[in-house]
């Protein structure tokens, strides 16, 4: 076995690691695409990213591997989760396609693209792997730093500017300018009295709850659920739990039974 050939092959340990983790990463990626709930997708993606970090380490990119874990899985994915929570953690994405032919086209394009890429790589004649032993001889991070601060120093500075711009941009996009002074508690109370719409505090949710009750609306005397009893945010997200007619029927039967037992005539009607 020649030296060149030796450099182009990896150890058995790495091969085992590649096949095990590689398959896991593909599954994670597929789950990211196919999971109904955004939060599940995010978790799968985080897993895939950690596997990628391991691969980076295996390929001698120690710095990148650590950065991948810290920045991607630690910061970016958490940012994703924050937004998912903001938008509604349980809001499931319907997987039925609305655009005509979109799924077929996507599948066709994806398949073709993948085949072409793999064919391209197969044709590329990548036979020699030099390894990073020589460039890492003076220390891996030091070698990276030398490149970043000499050859790539302009790009590096510009990415700094880019990050600052992105931070300012995110703030500008999400910032809501307060155009008037926030109303105080007293003013709110006075306004409520003045308008006379809802003088007492809002009714509590889910009097007949079987869950933790926050997303279950309270029922009015005639048995219809009242929107007032559920938080505005939940209503906006459409996360108000449906109080089905069946449950109300159950309750009705329960009341009737107890009324019969207690001999209350008027309640039986």
């Amino acid at each position: 076995m020649s030296a060149t050939a030796a450099a182009s092959l990896t150890s058995t340990g790495e091969a085992v690691q590649f096949w095990v983790l590689g398959i896991t990463a593909v599954i994670g990626a597929l789950c990211t695409v196919l999971m109904k709930k955004a939060v599940h997708s995010a978790l799968c993606l985080a897993g895939t990213m950690i596997i990628l970090a391991v691969f980076y380490l295996a390929n001698g990119a120690y710095f990148l591997g650590v950065v991948q874990i810290i920045v991607y899985t630690g910061a970016i994915m958490m940012l994703f989760l924050f937004v998912v929570m903001l938008v509604g953690v349980t809001a499931a994405d319907s997987l039925t396609e609305t655009l005509k032919g979109q799924r077929w086209l996507a599948a066709l394009c994806g398949l073709g693209f993948g085949i072409l890429l793999i064919a391209g790589i197969g044709n590329a004649g990548l036979k020699t792997f030099n390894g990073l032993g020589r460039v890492n001889s003076g220390g891996h991070v030091e070698a990276l730093a030398a490149l970043i601060f000499t050859k790539y120093v302009f790009a590096f500075e510009i990415t700094g500017a880019l990050l600052i711009t992105a931070a300012v941009g995110a703030m500008v996009l999400t910032h809501k300018e307060r155009t008037e002074r926030a109303a105080t508690q007293r003013e709110l109370a006075e306004r409520r009295v003045r308008e006379g719409v809802q003088l007492p505090p809002l009714p509590a949710p889910g009097v007949y709850a079987r869950h933790n009750a926050v997303d279950v609306p309270g029922l009015l005397p005639d048995g219809t659920p009242s929107d007032l009893t559920v938080s505005k945010t939940l209503r906006a997200r459409g996360q108000v739990r449906d109080v089905s007619a069946e449950a109300i029927e159950d309750l009705k039967a329960l009341e009737q039974r107890s009324a019969e037992r207690l001999g209350r005539e008027e309640a039986a009607k």
């Binding site: 655009l99 979109q102 086209l105 996507a106 394009c109 994806g110 073709g112 693209f113 072409l116 890429l117 064919a119 391209g120 044709n123």
Partner: peptide, 26 residues
């Protein structure tokens, strides 16, 4: 049609065609 995903399909398909063309030329 105004749907970003349709446009994405066009772009993706276009990229695929470009790669195919490059490979063919090579």
């Amino acid at each position: 049609n105004g749907y970003a995903r349709s446009y994405a399909v066009s772009m993706f398909g276009g990229t695929a065609i470009l790669i195919a063309a490059t490979l063919l030329m090579r």
